[in-house]
Amino acid sequence: MTGGLYVYAVVAGKPAELGTGIDGAALEVVAGPGDLAAVVHRHAAGPYEGADDDVRRWVVEHSDVVERVWESTGAVLPMSFNVIVAEGEETPARSRLEGWLTAGGRLLRERLDALENRVELRVEIGLDQHRVAERHPDVVAMREDLETRPPGVRRLLGKRLDQLEREVTDALADDLYQQYRRRLAAVSEELSENRSARPGEGVVPVLTVSLLVPRDAIPAVGQELAAVQDEEPAAVIRYLGPWPPYSFADVPGLAGPTPT
Rank of each mutant, 00 (worst) to 15 (best):
A26L: 11
L225D: 00
D138G: 15
E28T: 11
D54I: 11
G253E: 01
E134A: 11
P233I: 12
V132C: 05
T102Q: 12
G158K: 05
A38M: 04
S247A: 10
M1H: 12
A234R: 13
I218K: 00
A186T: 07
E87P: 09
H62N: 10
S63A: 15
P259R: 01
W70L: 04
Q223M: 00
D174A: 15
D138E: 14
T91K: 13
E193P: 04
L18W: 04
G241W: 06
G50S: 05
A133P: 12
E89D: 12
P137N: 14
V76L: 09
E232V: 13
A227L: 09
R195M: 07
G200K: 04
R155L: 15
R198A: 12
L240V: 05
R111E: 09
R198N: 10
V40M: 08
E190V: 02
A16T: 14
W70P: 02
E201F: 09
V153S: 11
A226H: 01
A234H: 11
G13W: 11
L121E: 07
V236N: 03
R238V: 06
V65L: 10
P252F: 01
L115R: 06
L108N: 02
A44F: 07
H41F: 04
D35V: 12
F81G: 12
D230H: 10
V83H: 13
A186W: 08
V203W: 04
R106T: 15
R154P: 08
D54G: 07
L225W: 00
P233D: 08
Q179P: 03
L212M: 09
R182I: 03
R109H: 07
V7R: 01
A75K: 01
A186V: 09
A16C: 05
T91N: 07
I84F: 11
V76D: 03
A249C: 01
W58L: 03
Q178G: 10
S188T: 05
V209W: 02
D128S: 14
V168H: 10
A9E: 02
R56S: 06
V228L: 12
E134I: 04
R182L: 10
G222R: 00
D250A: 10
D53F: 14
D170V: 11
V132Y: 09
A255T: 03
D23F: 11
Q178I: 04
A235H: 12
D128I: 09
Q129N: 12
R96A: 15
P257T: 00
E90I: 05
D170T: 08
E201N: 10
E124M: 06
L77C: 05
G88W: 12
G4N: 02
A235S: 15
A44M: 06
A26V: 13
I237W: 08
G99L: 04
A171D: 15
Q223C: 00
T148D: 14
E116Y: 13
L146P: 08
E201D: 11
